[in-house]
Each structure stands twice: as C-alpha cells, then as structure tokens.
C-alpha cells in the first residue's frame, strides 16, 4: 500500500504531508527555543547591576559562524533548485557543501567551548583573583601556571571589552588558592544559559547534518525511482536547516553582541 500525499498536496491542507508535518514540528521548536530565550531574558533583567558579563565571547568566531551558517542555508537552497532543474550531480555538490559547512560550524563551536573550559578564575586567600588560561595544572605539583592577570575584585572581570592589564605567565602556589573554577556552565548564570542554548542549537545542527547526509548518501537512490518525492525530502530538510539558521540569527546577537 502506498502512503498517500507524499508528492501531491492534500486537498484540505494544500500541502504534501511531510511539509505540514515539518511546519508543525518547527512550531514546537519555536516554543522550545522560546522557553529558553525567555529564561535568558528572565536571568538577564533580574541580574543585579554590574553582574551580567559583556564581551566574554569571541565575536570574530561568532561572526564567522554566522557567515558559515548563512552560506549553508544558500547551498541547501541551491541543492533543491538543482533537483528542480533535474541537475542531480549539481545537487550532490551543493548538499555536500552544506554538510561540510555544518561540520565547520560545529568545529568552531567546539573550539570556543574548549577555550571556555581552559579559562579559569582563581580566587586567592589574599582576596585577589587570577584570571586566565590554564597552562599547567599537574596533580602532584605544588603550583599551577596560568596565562592571565590579577584583579582586585570580580567586577573588573565583567566587561571583556575593557582593555585590562597585560597577560603574563602566573605561577600560583596551590597553598594560596581559596577557590578555582573554569568558565564552564557552572561558572555563572550567563555561561549556564550560554551553554544550554548553544549546545541545544549545536545538537540541532548535528541532527540536521545526519538527516542531510542520509538523504545525500544512501537515501539518494530514491532520486532514480521517485524523483518528485526525493525533491520534497530535500525541501523539507531544507526547511529545518533554515530554521536552525534562524535560531542562530537571534542567538548570535543576544549572546555575543548585547
């Protein structure tokens, strides 16, 4: 038995089933990300003055990722247009580019995460704070080495755009350390919501890549038996991909620029 309306639109909706299904799914996704965005707003407007960080994220890498994702949205679309024009080899090239761009996005994001996990705030017993990237942290050593600088209080760390003291190699005896924590999700509310939102988004990218890679690879046999249905699959996966781009269009300014 054939599944109805995989190619032809249903008379009542005017859409083929996969497309209306995708739009319903995207509606639920809007609410998922909307909930987290509202959590971000709640945390941000509720933060006491001077405690919400600015400039902690790498704007250059964020901008590069924005360009990469926008470009991948275009290659997805060009892949679909190529199928509409019956140009299968051209489609293969464009969708391969989409996959490569998506993997590049994930690579850059991973690099940003790594940077945060290597960045430490070390509170010393004399009240000063050492802030910088971990260079040496051997368990059996009686000291750690950071590439960073000292500040007198945490407020000085809140604005990443401010040109601070020059970063140097700091050798800190373990006996002088009161507390040490990296810039992971547990560091503060900003990093908690940053990791939550961007990891969820990255998982969507990963899911999208898996689906697109399946359609591009083993699933492409369908082009030779049912080209219209295959083209619809590419269109629907493209809709999801554009939604992922849309989410990043808001994530980038909200987290990196404001």
């Amino acid at each position: 038995m054939d599944i109805p309306y995989t190619v032809k639109p249903r008379p009542d909706t005017g859409l083929y089933n996969a497309k209306i299904g995708m739009w319903l799914f995207l509606a639920s996704e809007v609410m998922l990300f909307g909930g987290l965005f509202s959590a971000y707003i709640f945390l941000r407007v509720g933060a006491p003055a001077g405690t919400w960080p600015h400039g902690w994220l790498n704007v250059t890498l964020g901008t590069i990722n924005t360009v990469i994702l926008a470009l991948s949205a275009i290659t997805t679309l060009l892949a679909w247009v190529a199928l509409k024009l019956n140009q299968f080899p051209r489609y293969k090239v464009f969708h391969a580019l989409t996959i490569l761009l998506a993997l590049t996005f994930l690579g850059i994001k991973s690099y940003e995460y790594r940077d945060k996990f290597l960045h430490f705030e070390v509170q010393l017993k004399d009240g000063r704070i050492a802030d910088g990237h971990m260079v040496e942290n051997k368990r059996d050593a009686d000291h750690i080495v950071l590439h960073g600088h000292y500040v007198e209080n945490r407020a000085e760390l809140m604005d990443g755009h401010t040109k601070g003291k020059e970063h140097t190699e700091l050798k800190i005896p373990r006996a002088d350390i009161k507390r040490m924590q990296n810039y992971g999700p547990a560091h503060n509310n900003f990093l908690g919501i940053y990791f939550c939102l961007t990891i969820l988004h990255a998982l969507h990218i990963l899911g999208g890549v898996l689906v697109i890679a399946y359609i591009w690879g083993p699933g492409s046999k369908m082009w030779f038996t049912d080209p219209e249905r295959y083209t619809n699959r590419v269109e629907v996966s493209g809709l999801f991909w554009h939604f992922v781009d849309l989410v990043w269009i808001f994530l980038f300014p909200v987290l990196y620029l404001t």
């Binding site: 005017g14 739009w23 509606a27």
Partner: peptide, 11 residues
C-alpha cells in the same frame, strides 16, 4: 499556503 499561516498564528 493558508494552512502554514494558521499553524504559525497559533505559534
């Protein structure tokens, strides 16, 4: 199509 707009209005 109208159906998509209906879904989005609710969203």
């Amino acid at each position: 199509r109208k159906m998509v707009y209906i879904v989005l209005v609710f969203t």
